[in-house]
Design a binder for these strands. Structure first.
Lengths: 208, 208
DNA sequence: TCCAGTACTGGACAAATAAACAGCACTGTG
DNA sequence: CACAGTGCTGTTTATTTGTCCAGTACTGGA
């Protein structure tokens, strides 16, 4: 593929962005307006250059027919996005019962999360610094996959006293316990049954 | 939501299908052609009915502006997703020059990232532990917003010796320098101009 | 029978849009 | 200097598209 000029790359990015966020490709006029061209033709020229270089497709004489050719690796994988609800705390019971109390939502592609598309997944806003040893800080969102068998060393969301906390799941001599990754917090040896809500598969941190 | 007539459901399905497969919504004439209407107006009437019932959105007087309202759980919040390209390392020059060399992609919603939808954003796979003090570990993906003025304390991607590294941007007595969040790494006081690629707005960590 | 709702035809019109043509300014190169 | 490439302006033309108006046909009540 031929290289694009800086300006052409900007135009291409804009078109891609618009198509992804608005669901439809921009018109030449919208491109021109966004880049403050006073002539549509400037946009047209760029689009034609992108067309010639094969990074854009179009149906001639059709409104909004621009399509970014993502011919590369992302052409085949269709971006399967899942909407992950975020909870600040999860009350007793199954997490899906609390679906209405989601505090927010993160949309991420299945690929990145590395989960099964069928999996029940939710986000958990981390409170405190009990997992600081694994570099999980206050305010981070832990993406938890429900219904997975945890392995030793996995970070899991566990139900303790009606509250969900993040801990490291450790198997020692066949017996499981939960370890906090901060010396100021005690380990938890379960008296009865260990209630694991799910295993952390990803972490998202936002700028405050 | 009011119930749809059989015909209306067919029309709605067609519009959804076209948008998903072609990447753009059909025009009224395309709808009419597909259903073998000899008048555009038949399609218009149906579309208006769907509009009235709230299952379809549109921008008036705009070509191909139909959008199916996904009645699902994510109905209210419009999931504006952006496709963030991920670079392992960025060679010398501006990041957009290396667009073709993206190693992967993360799809995330604009809401979570807290960026302007028009912004140029990219992901940077973190190498090493020079930012461990801010709990950014090897393998993390830093989401960088390009073209933003960094403030003191922000984590930024900076261009040093043709390589992009993550550092904390610090303004001390009006003079900027870059701080590594690890005592084993030295601070960087720029000799000439400080090349800031962008400011970190979010962090994504995948389970390995 | 009358009426209302749904489904469609046919035609006309204005706005939105793509496309083409003629330029101008700037930059680097031989 | 001439020349080519890039980036942009300004204008015109043809097509596409959304919208409106008037009318037909069928259906199922009241």
């Amino acid at each position: 593929m031929k290289t694009l000029t800086e300006r052409q790359q900007e135009i291409l990015d804009f078109i891609r962005q618009r198509q992804e966020s608005e669901g439809m490709a921009p018109t030449l006029r919208e491109v021109a307006t966004h880049f403050r061209f006073s002539s549509v033709n400037a946009a047209l020229a760029h689009v034609q250059a992108l067309l010639a270089k094969g990074v854009l497709k179009r149906v001639p004489r059709r409104a909004r027919s621009l399509q970014v050719v993502d011919a590369g690796p992302s052409a085949r994988r269709r971006p399967r996005v899942v909407s992950v609800p975020i909870y600040g705390s999860i009350p007793a019971g199954r997490p899906e019962d609390a679906a209405q109390e989601a505090e927010g939502c993160v949309l991420m592609d299945v690929e990145t999360l590395g989960i099964r598309p069928t999996a029940r997944t939710f986000g958990l806003q981390v409170r405190g610094d009990s997992m600081i040893g694994k570099h999980i800080t206050d305010g981070d969102i832990a993406i938890i996959e429900h219904g997975v068998q945890p392995r030793s060393g996995d970070v899991v969301a566990a139900l303790i006293d009606g509250q969900v906390t993040l801990k490291t799941f450790v198997l020692q001599r066949g017996k499981p316990y939960l370890r906090a990754e901060n010396p100021r917090y005690p380990d938890l040896i379960p008296q009865e049954e260990l209630q694991i809500q799910g295993v952390m598969v990803a972490l998202v941190r936002k700028r405050k």
